[in-house]
Amino acid sequence: DNLVIALHSYEPSHDGDLGFEKGEQLRILEQSGEWWKAQSLTTGQEGFIPFNFVAKA
């Protein structure tokens, strides 16, 4: 599955970004460039995340 774990917390800075906490698990929905579309397994919310803040779970 496309699961990743957050290496750092991220505060959203643009509409459509997904904020998350360090250690949170996310499911990657789309990989494109440096911003990936993801869904939080904690909150169920979707949005874009910086790819370098996460690692394969």
Rank of each mutant, 00 (worst) to 15 (best):
residue 26 L to H: 00
residue 33 G to I: 03
residue 36 W to V: 09
residue 12 P to T: 06
residue 36 W to I: 09
residue 32 S to I: 13
residue 28 I to F: 00
residue 17 D to W: 14
residue 5 I to D: 01
residue 44 G to F: 08
residue 48 F to M: 12
residue 27 R to C: 08
residue 40 S to D: 01
residue 45 Q to G: 07
residue 34 E to N: 13
residue 48 F to T: 07
residue 26 L to W: 02
residue 12 P to Y: 05
residue 49 I to F: 07
residue 20 F to H: 00
residue 7 L to N: 04
residue 27 R to E: 03
residue 37 K to Q: 06
residue 49 I to P: 03
residue 2 N to R: 09
residue 52 N to Y: 12
residue 48 F to V: 07
residue 44 G to M: 09
residue 43 T to I: 01
residue 45 Q to T: 06
residue 51 F to K: 15
residue 21 E to A: 13
residue 43 T to F: 02
residue 4 V to I: 05
residue 39 Q to C: 09
residue 20 F to W: 02
residue 17 D to E: 15
residue 21 E to M: 13
residue 43 T to S: 10
residue 7 L to D: 01
residue 52 N to T: 11
residue 29 L to T: 06
residue 18 L to M: 08
residue 21 E to Q: 14
residue 51 F to A: 15
residue 25 Q to S: 10
residue 49 I to T: 00
residue 40 S to Q: 03
residue 11 E to S: 14
residue 19 G to C: 07
residue 50 P to N: 06
residue 38 A to D: 00
residue 38 A to P: 00
residue 38 A to T: 01
residue 14 H to A: 11
residue 4 V to Q: 04
residue 9 S to K: 12
residue 7 L to G: 02
residue 46 E to D: 06
residue 15 D to V: 13
residue 11 E to P: 07
residue 4 V to T: 04
residue 32 S to D: 12
residue 23 G to I: 02
residue 2 N to A: 08
residue 14 H to M: 10
residue 17 D to S: 09
residue 38 A to S: 01
residue 50 P to G: 02
residue 47 G to F: 06
residue 53 F to V: 05
residue 48 F to R: 10
residue 41 L to T: 07
residue 21 E to V: 14
residue 41 L to Q: 04
residue 43 T to Q: 02
residue 50 P to W: 09
residue 23 G to N: 05
residue 25 Q to N: 08
residue 11 E to C: 14
residue 35 W to T: 07
residue 53 F to N: 02
residue 20 F to E: 01
residue 24 E to Y: 03
residue 37 K to P: 00
residue 56 K to P: 14
residue 11 E to F: 14
residue 55 A to T: 13
residue 32 S to W: 12
residue 5 I to T: 08
residue 54 V to I: 07
residue 57 A to I: 15
residue 41 L to G: 02
residue 37 K to A: 04
residue 53 F to S: 08
residue 20 F to P: 00
residue 16 G to S: 08
residue 1 D to R: 09
residue 23 G to A: 03
residue 31 Q to E: 11
residue 25 Q to M: 15
residue 29 L to Y: 05
residue 24 E to T: 05
residue 1 D to G: 11
residue 47 G to W: 05
residue 9 S to M: 06
residue 10 Y to A: 02
residue 14 H to C: 15
residue 13 S to Y: 12
residue 13 S to P: 06
residue 54 V to Y: 04
residue 6 A to L: 04
residue 6 A to F: 04
residue 4 V to Y: 15
residue 34 E to T: 13
residue 8 H to N: 08
residue 43 T to Y: 02
residue 45 Q to Y: 09
residue 17 D to K: 09
residue 13 S to Q: 15
residue 28 I to Q: 00
residue 26 L to Q: 01
residue 16 G to Q: 08
residue 17 D to V: 09
residue 12 P to S: 14
residue 25 Q to W: 15
residue 20 F to K: 00
residue 29 L to Q: 03
residue 22 K to M: 09
residue 28 I to T: 01
residue 57 A to N: 10
residue 46 E to G: 03
residue 29 L to P: 00
residue 49 I to K: 00
residue 14 H to S: 11
